[in-house]
Computed example of a mutant assay.
Amino acid sequence: MSEKRKLAFSKANYLIMIAGIIVLAIGFIIMTLDSEPYGFGFLGLTLGPIVVMLGFAIEFVAIFYKPKSKSDTE
């Protein structure tokens, strides 16, 4: 039982996930800053959703990112 347990993701994956969550939060905050009624301005309809989609893309990359291990190069 001295075998070390492995997590599903590496440290790099978790750091990328945290970055994606931060970008998602920034996107939602941008959407709330729109001064037009019901968010029908540039921030609510264009910039905010683009930033949110970028955040989801970062999360997608974080899930599928596989860091190179030292044993792969041998």
Rank of each mutant, 00 (worst) to 15 (best):
S71L: 09
G20A: 07
M53V: 12
F40K: 14
F64G: 07
L47N: 09
S35W: 03
E74T: 13
E59M: 15
G39C: 05
R5D: 10
Y65H: 03
K68T: 02
I21A: 13
L47V: 11
F40N: 15
A62Q: 01
S10Y: 06
T32L: 09
N13E: 03
Y14E: 01
D34I: 06
A25D: 04
I29W: 13
P37E: 00
K68L: 02
A25R: 00
I26F: 06
I22G: 10
K4D: 01
F42M: 12
I21G: 13
V23S: 05
P37V: 00
D34S: 09
Y38M: 15
Y14K: 06
E3D: 13
A25S: 08
P49C: 08
L33Y: 12
G48L: 01
F60T: 13
M17T: 09
L47Q: 06
K66I: 10
E74L: 15
I30D: 00
L33V: 08
I21W: 11
N13V: 02
K4W: 02
V52D: 00
M53G: 13
V23H: 07
R5C: 08
D34Y: 02
F60Q: 07
L7E: 14
L43F: 03
A25I: 05
K6M: 10
F28Q: 06
L47I: 08
F9Y: 06
L7W: 15
K70S: 03
E74R: 12
L45W: 13
F42Q: 07
I26V: 12
S71W: 12
S2R: 14
F42E: 07
I63R: 02
K6C: 01
D34E: 02
K70L: 01
A62P: 00
A19R: 04
L45S: 12
I50H: 09
I29H: 13
I29D: 14
